[in-house]
């Protein structure tokens, strides 16, 4: 069976929402058990006292990309059939900058705030309410944002294509960069004063 299973018709479309709940449960369980339901633990990455976000995030991204390239290599999955988020350069950067500000203020991202709500964090409930309001404001202010939202469409661009190297070489370099960051993070964490939370 070649993946992706549902788009290629190996599993009926009707199962899609069942898998949504099951995969979401796996997502929520791994985030919470890694400590992503605590804003103070998450913020440790930015002050050097706990690099859990850096370690979990990059390990997860590398696991997924290596897994997908491997499954593609042995013919079990079609890497080119997977959805690639299109690149709109200005919107990706501006949106990312605004999200980064929100991250430092709120201490959560949307997914981690839902995990924190699930275990009873009131601050995360306020963050989630803020998400609703922020998305509503964006939607209503869209005429003002439309130009930047639609500008510089580079399509489903892959980062290795943009750099002119193969997917395998890029992934290998990504692993080296991640290992370097983990090494530095471990040294920094050993030197920074511990914060209790």
């Amino acid at each position: 069976m070649t993946g992706p299973l549902i788009p290629l018709g190996y599993i009926p479309e009707a199962w899609n929402n069942v898998f949504a709940v099951l995969l979401g449960m796996g997502f929520g369980f791994t985030l919470e058990s890694s400590g992503f339901s605590s804003s103070r633990k998450i913020m440790g990455t930015f002050y050097g006292y706990d690099f859990v976000v850096l370690k979990v995030f990059f390990t997860a991204a590398i696991t997924a990309v290596v897994g997908l390239l491997y499954l593609d290599q042995i013919g079990w999955a079609d890497f080119s059939a997977m959805y690639v988020l299109p690149t709109y350069m200005a919107a990706a950067i501006t949106g990312g900058v605004i999200m980064g500000m929100g991250f430092a203020m709120g201490g959560y991202c949307p997914g981690t705030s839902f995990c924190a709500v699930a275990i009873g964090k009131i601050d995360a409930l306020l963050f989630s309410a803020g998400l609703l309001v922020g998305i509503f404001i964006f939607s209503e202010a869209f005429p003002l944002m439309e130009k930047i939202y639609e500008s510089g469409n580079l399509g489903a661009l892959r980062v290795n294509e943009a750099l002119g190297i193969s997917a395998g070489l890029f992934t290998f370099l990504l692993i080296l960069i991640a290992l370097g960051m983990f090494w530095v993070a471990t040294i920094v964490q050993g030197k920074v004063k511990k914060v209790e939370y």
């Binding site: 929100g102 709120g106 959560y108 949307p110 998305i135 404001i137």
Partner: peptide, 12 residues
């Protein structure tokens, strides 16, 4: 922070 994150997520 949630408001900013929500706003930015739509742009990106």
């Amino acid at each position: 922070g949630g408001m900013l994150f929500g706003f930015g997520s739509q742009l990106a």
